[in-house]
Amino acid sequence: MAPKKAAEAGKRKKEMIQLEDKKEIIRKHEGGMRLTDLAKEYGRRASTIGTILKMKKKITGRDAAKGVTRVSKQRPPVLEAVEKLLLLWIEQKQRAGGSVTKAIICEKAKALHADLLKQLPGTSADAESFKDSRGWFERFKTRSGIHSVVRHGEAASSDVAAAEEFATEFLEVIVSEGYVPQQVFNCNETRLFWKRMPKRTFITEEETSLPGHKPTKDRLTFLFCANASGDLKIKPLLFYHSENSRAFKKHKVNKEQLSILWQYNSKAWVTRLLFVKWVNVVFGPAVKKYLVDNNLPLKAMLLMDNVPDHPPGLEEDLLEDFNFIKVMFLPPNTTPLLQPMDQQVISNFKKLYTRELFRRCFEMIDCSSLTLHEFWRDHFDIVSCLQIITIA
Results as ranks from 00 to 15, higher is better:
Ala6Glu: 08
Ala6Arg: 10
Ala9Trp: 06
Gly10Leu: 08
Gly10Ile: 01
Lys13Val: 13
Lys14Glu: 07
Met16Arg: 07
Glu20Leu: 05
Lys22Gly: 01
Lys22Ala: 00
Lys23Gly: 01
Glu24Thr: 11
Ile25Met: 15
Lys28Gln: 14
Met33Asp: 01
Leu38Thr: 12
Glu41Pro: 00
Ser47Val: 15
Thr48Phe: 06
Ile49Arg: 10
Thr51Trp: 08
Leu53Val: 11
Lys56Cys: 05
Gly61Pro: 06
Arg62Cys: 10
Arg62Gln: 14
Asp63His: 07
Gly67His: 08
Gly67Ile: 04
Arg75Pro: 00
Arg75Leu: 06
Pro76Met: 05
Leu79Pro: 02
Leu88Cys: 08
Leu88Arg: 13
Leu88Glu: 11
Ile90Ser: 01
Gly98Trp: 12
Ile104Trp: 12
Ile105Trp: 02
Ile105Phe: 03
Asp115Lys: 08
Lys118Asp: 12
Leu120Tyr: 02
Pro121Trp: 00
Lys141His: 01
Thr142Met: 03
Ser148Ala: 14
Arg151Cys: 14
Arg151Val: 12
His152Cys: 12
Glu154Asp: 12
Glu154Tyr: 12
Ala155Val: 09
Ser157Tyr: 09
Ser157Cys: 09
Ala162Ile: 07
Phe170Ile: 06
Ile174Ala: 13
Val184Lys: 08
Phe193Leu: 14
Arg196Gln: 15
Phe202Ile: 02
Ile203Asn: 05
Pro215Phe: 03
Leu220Phe: 12
Thr221Leu: 10
Cys225Glu: 03
Ala226Phe: 01
Asn227Val: 03
Ser229Thr: 11
Asp231Arg: 08
Leu238Arg: 10
Leu238Phe: 13
Phe239Gln: 11
Tyr240Cys: 13
Asn244Glu: 09
Asn254Cys: 00
Lys255Arg: 10
Lys255Gly: 00
Ile260Val: 15
Leu261Trp: 09
Tyr264Val: 04
Asn265Ser: 12
Asn265Val: 11
Trp269Leu: 14
Val270Gln: 05
Leu274Gln: 15
Val276Gln: 13
Gly284Ser: 15
Lys299Trp: 03
Leu303Gly: 08
Met304Cys: 11
Val307Asn: 00
Pro308Val: 13
Glu315Pro: 01
Leu319Arg: 08
Asp321Tyr: 00
Phe322His: 10
Asn323Asp: 09
Phe324Lys: 07
Lys326Trp: 02
Asn333Trp: 02
Leu337Gly: 06
Leu338Ser: 07
Met341Glu: 07
Met341Leu: 14
Met341Asp: 06
Asp342Ile: 03
Gln343Glu: 08
Ile346His: 04
Lys351Leu: 06
Arg355Cys: 05
Arg360Thr: 02
Cys361Val: 03
Ile365Thr: 05
Thr371Gln: 02
Thr371Val: 04
Leu372Val: 06
Asp381Ser: 06
Asp381Gln: 05
Ser384Asp: 12
Leu386Cys: 05
Ile388Val: 11
Ala392Pro: 01
